[in-house]
């Protein structure tokens, strides 16, 4: 990351010539991307090896995700941080140790180079934190209006240790559901940062990598059944997916849900349900009841799991049904989200 060694780039903004395949493009890539990511070679493909893959019974985990976020920089992160965390987390919740990422950028003509640099710097910082390397990538430049500043696609490869088998269909009646922290911070932070509703808050996105946390859980609770990264659609959607796959019912406790007062405030003002707000660093993990305490204690000893708490249980009710016991012991269904949650006044 030696700034002095970077080739000079005179432009302040990306122009179509930066996508033309010529010298301008090479300069952009070297100046903004490869000088930071430092790939081992400049061949058209990354060549990879890791001892963990060689172990008999080990499996590769492979995932991809595209990232579009408005605003591109928000309290607690930016599109680059999300792009790394999101893919790292998709690997992590499968029990994989994340190893390598690719990163592809669709850049809108006119985007500030300085913005790209900030995005790339936060990707690098997050990748270092997660212990993964960004080993290959691509850039394309599109005309003004054909993209919203920058879209990022990351793919990731990780390795699953031979003794790790996580799958939602392994969840048993009686297993407990744990979340690692407060819900809905990302969704609420983005809503406020967008400014359409003219709300100001101190809420910061929960955007964070969950790789280390997940390994901690697996060590403490060896019979962990399954985990999900509760991103779009929130915890409600993650639970519904898991209930469906497990062919079990899940009941959560309203009083157990960890919510920041400000997130509650945003939800009350706009008539939203925090269970459906997006998270970018929140996992739902099912462990056997007798390993719950160990999992909780281990999670709480980490930064990403400081506020870990049990929110509910799986039981042999109607397959795929998620319900919530309300404050007063009433019950209501927590369904999948239909479309997008819209702010309401009625």
């Amino acid at each position: 990351m030696n700034m002095m060694s970077r080739p000079k780039l005179r432009d302040q903004r990306v122009t179509l010539s930066h996508g033309g395949g010529g010298k301008a493009m090479r300069d952009l890539i070297e100046h903004v991307f490869t000088s930071v990511f430092e790939p081992a070679s400049m061949e058209d493909q990354a060549r990879l090896m890791n001892d963990a893959i060689q172990e008999p019974g080990a499996r590769l985990a492979f995932t991809t995700d595209s990232f579009v976020v408005d605003p591109i920089e928000f309290p607690g992160g930016d599109i680059g941080k999300i792009a790394v965390c999101g893919t790292v987390n998709d690997l992590a919740v499968g029990g994989a140790k994340p190893l390598w990422l690719s990163a592809a950028f669709i850049i809108e003509e006119g985007t500030e180079i300085a913005l790209l640099e900030r995005i790339v710097a936060s990707m690098k910082a997050e990748a270092d934190k997660a212990g993964v390397r960004i080993v290959t990538g691509d850039t394309k430049v599109v005309g003004r209006g054909s993209a919203d500043k920058v879209f990022v696609t990351t793919a990731g490869v990780g390795v699953i240790a031979p003794d790790v088998h996580l799958s939602a269909d392994l969840i048993q009646p009686g297993d407990v559901a744990i979340v690692n922290g407060v819900l809905g911070d990302h969704g609420a932070a983005i809503l406020a940062a967008r400014g359409d509703m003219a709300l100001s808050t101190d809420i910061v996105s929960d955007c964070q990598g969950l790789g280390h946390l997940m390994q901690t859980v697996l060590a403490a609770a060896p019979n962990t059944r399954a985990a999900r990264d509760a991103t779009r659609g929130g915890v409600a959607s993650a639970l519904n997916e898991m209930a469906e796959a497990a062919k079990l019912a899940i009941e959560i406790e309203e009083t157990a849900l960890p919510l920041r007062p400000e997130v509650k405030g945003v939800c009350e003002i706009l008539g939203l349900d925090p269970l459906y707000l997006a998270n970018e660093g929140t996992l739902v993990v099912f462990v056997p009841a007798d390993e719950a305490d160990a999992a909780l204690a281990a999670m709480r000893a980490t930064d990403a799991g400081r506020d870990a708490v049990v929110i509910g249980r799986a039981h042999a009710g109607e397959a795929g049904r998620v319900t919530m016991r309300t404050l007063f012991g009433g019950a209501r269904i927590v369904d999948m989200l239909v479309g997008e949650q819209l702010p309401r006044i009625c």
Partner: peptide
């Protein structure tokens, strides 16, 4: 101020 969220 509603629960730490501000709005004019």
């Amino acid at each position: 101020d509603v629960s730490g969220v501000r709005r004019e």
